[in-house]
Write a protein that binds this DNA or RNA. Structure first.
Lengths: 120, 120
DNA sequence: TAATGTAGGCACTAAAAAGTAACAAATGAA
DNA sequence: TTCATTTGTTACTTTTTAGTGCCTACATTA
């Protein structure tokens, strides 16, 4: 059984790493298909995406729904437990925004513009 | 210049990684000397501790104060900017606690008891 | 018949993060 | 004189994390 020195380490085990918070921030806005997530996160590879999604699913914060179609359709969404992270995710997003503004006064240089067609 | 797809990535760059949130959670309670931090985080090595502290300092969230003594005395504390992370750190700690309770009903097995002499 | 689209597996390689161990510096104490 | 103390550095090695390329499945469409 995993041992922690302080409780916050348990939270980091669930949402730590390079991608999980980003994935969750997308899923907090809407449920998403695998391909949508990939487009929303241009830097991630299929392998990493699947891997991170599996771990989030195991930890009970996201739900994976498979529709029996061809070609396959898989949708990811937050579970009720996942929604308990909303406060953290929101403040992280807000802090990131103001940190960018503080660090790079002309913020348009820093944010990569992605045309999120699905979001229109 | 670093580019982000979404602003939250900027936050992760500052507090991401295995140790930074833990360090900040300790500093939110009190200013700490290097050795105290090391004792509070039994898993960390001197190298990682220094490295993470340097990065946090560069990002402006902690302050490093050197007292001209022998043997040396160095104290770390949150800067005002660092305090803007308090909300995030608090909710992360709280979420971690309840996650442990949910996952391991007898939580005493999971938390390593450290006698934090400095805290008495 | 052959290409398309979607989600994902697997083996292998590359890169990043973290750990190890030895060393430094300066003063007071044994 | 030699050791302990405290913080930190550096070179090197190991471990972890991430990336690449290739493969599958199968109904639909061209």
């Amino acid at each position: 059984m995993k041992k922690y020195n302080i409780p916050v380490e348990a939270a980091l085990e669930v949402i730590g790493g390079k991608w999980k918070v980003v994935i969750l921030c997308h899923l907090i806005k809407d449920k998403r298909r695998t391909g949508e997530l990939k487009r929303l996160m241009p830097g991630i590879t299929q392998k990493m995406l699947t891997q991170q999604l599996r771990e989030l699913e195991e930890d009970g914060v996201i739900l994976r729904e498979v529709y029996n179609q061809v070609p396959p359709r898989v949708e990811y969404s937050l579970t009720e437990y996942g929604w308990s992270l909303k406060g953290i995710l929101d403040s992280l997003c807000a802090w990131g925004e103001q940190h960018i503004e503080k660090t790079y006064p002309n913020k348009e240089e820093v944010l990569i513009q992605t045309e999120e067609l699905e979001q229109v």
